[in-house]
Every structure is written in structure tokens, then in C-alpha cells.
Simulated assay, not measured.
Amino acid sequence: MTYRFTQALLTSALILGIAGCGSSSTPDADIDAAQQPPEASAAEQAKPPISKFKAYTQRFGGETLLTQSHATGHVGDWFFTHWKDGGEASFKLDPQGNFKIDWIGGDYNYVGGPGWERGDRNRVIGYHLNEDSGASYVTLYGWGYNKDMDPTDPAHLVEYYVVQRGVRTPGQGGEEGVSFTSNGVEYTTIRTVRREKPSINNTATFYQYWSKPKEQLPLGQDHKIIFADHVAAWERNGWKLPDMDNFDASDDPTYQVFAVEVFMVEKGGTVSGRVWDAGP
């Protein structure tokens, strides 16, 4: 299962600090430097400013190592999430999208990865994995939310997974939908429901949509996730994905990240690689 952090925890996480790799300065100096953000790119300047979720505005210009329990923000133009409910896990990210996630043991829940603070059904994600020593899921991950729908209808809030690798079976006990092929990979769609569980909008009842590959995607190769194919397949089942580009939820925007999730695994491990925007 997946747990979510609250905005209060995000705020407290800022106090814990984020240390930039390769720096000889003290942790406090790193925090002060991080609060002086680099100039935003033209693409970032074109977007409305983030005002609701203050933690998302912190920016780091160079390779950054996250070791605390909760953190979010940007390294260069890459948005990131980093969350755990215990144990020891770290996340390193640089402005080129190179990342490395290490965890010790697995009797806790960890979710983290690089991506975007706003989801996009037409996004094409490129990635290359150097190593994966046993994550629960390596997956494109995100949320859709419609504040105008009935909150008792699970369809108003959706947590989605486009799984690429993993040691756990995705969508166990769920409703199986259509199978389809995207970019040469065969997937099966699955829908599960979470009742009164933590989410980006406090505690809620919501759907999870899954795309499960027939076989794990291999390491050491470039891969592409064409997200529109997955949205279309879910919709062929009648499973609509709510708006993925909003800041309406109480705790987080509808972000979209290439995530590593770890829970109920037997031992520690590492996932490393690179992510890039493969769209036109």
C-alpha cells in the first residue's frame, strides 16, 4: 500500500534540511544557498507561479542528496518527491535527470523520484535504468483530481501506475480490463479501489489505475513510456482519469513522476538511472 505525506509534514521537512552533494559548506549554509533559487527556465517562467504549496518552490541548482523523511521541490528543472514513513532511504538527483535511490531493509514505505509538478496525458517519458536490486515498483506514477465531482465517488480522485519493473504483483485483487501494446510493450489494465486512505487530498476513497507489463522492462536500455496510450486504454474500460494539471487538492498538486516505491521487500537495494522528456 502507499501512504501520502501532508503539507504540515512537508513544511517540517524544510527544517530538516537538504544537503547538496560535493559541497564543502555546512548543512546550514546549504539550506541558505538553496533558498537563493537559480533563474527559472523559459518554460518555467511561462507557467503560473506556485503559491499554494510553498514547499514546491524550493530549488537546487546542482546535484542534491535527500536523506530526511520528507522533501519535495526542484533540482534544476526537475521536480522531485521524496517520502518515507521510517527506515533509511536516500535519493540523489542532478539537473540532467540522473538519479540514484538507495534503501536499507524494506519494512517501511518509501516513494521518490524525478518528474513534473503537473501531470500531462500527452507526456512521453524516456528513461534508462542502470540497476534495480529489488524495488517493489519502478513506475510512472501520479494523480488526477476533480474537485467538482462527488467526493464519495472514487472516480473523483485517481492514483495511477504505469509499472516498468517490480518484485510485487501490481493491482492485486483488482478488476482487470483491456490488454494493449504501447511502444512494443504488452500491458494489462487493472483498477483497484482504496477506501478512506491517505491521498493528495487528505483521507479519501479513490481509484488506482494500473498498467502492468507482461514482462519486466530490461536494464541497460533506453525505454519510452507513451502516457497517452495508457490513458486511452483505461478509458476503453470506462475508467476516466480526472484533471492532472491542477493545484486544487488539499495536500499536493497532481504531480507526475518516474518513481521508485519500496515496501514489504526482504532486503535493501538500489535503483539508478536517468529520466528525460522524450516528447516532441
Rank of each mutant, 00 (worst) to 15 (best):
I226H: 13
A13K: 01
V162A: 03
L219D: 01
A89T: 04
P198I: 05
F91D: 03
F227E: 10
G238F: 04
Q7F: 13
L241E: 11
A13W: 03
N183E: 14
P48K: 09
S136E: 03
D245M: 02
K84S: 10
R195E: 15
A228P: 03
R191A: 06
R168W: 14
K147G: 11
G173R: 00
K100F: 04
A233I: 03
D77F: 04
V257K: 03
H223D: 01
Q164R: 09
R59W: 01
N109F: 15
I18A: 11
L16W: 12
T72L: 15
D150S: 10
G184K: 10
T11H: 06
G220A: 05
Y161M: 05
A232Q: 11
G173P: 00
E44C: 00
R168C: 04
A43H: 13
A135W: 04
A34W: 00
Q96D: 14
S12I: 09
Y207I: 00
E131A: 15
K197L: 14
T64Q: 02
S250I: 04
K100D: 10
D107N: 15
D153E: 10
E159N: 04
Y127N: 02
K92M: 13
Q256H: 11
H74Y: 12
T270F: 01
D85K: 08
N98K: 10
V275Q: 02
W143S: 08
I50S: 11
D245G: 01
G105I: 03
D107I: 00
D94N: 14
P48R: 07
R274K: 14
N201D: 15
N202H: 11
A46G: 04
W116C: 05
Q172W: 11
A71F: 08
D120C: 10
E88F: 10
D248M: 02
Y141M: 07
D243N: 15
D252C: 04
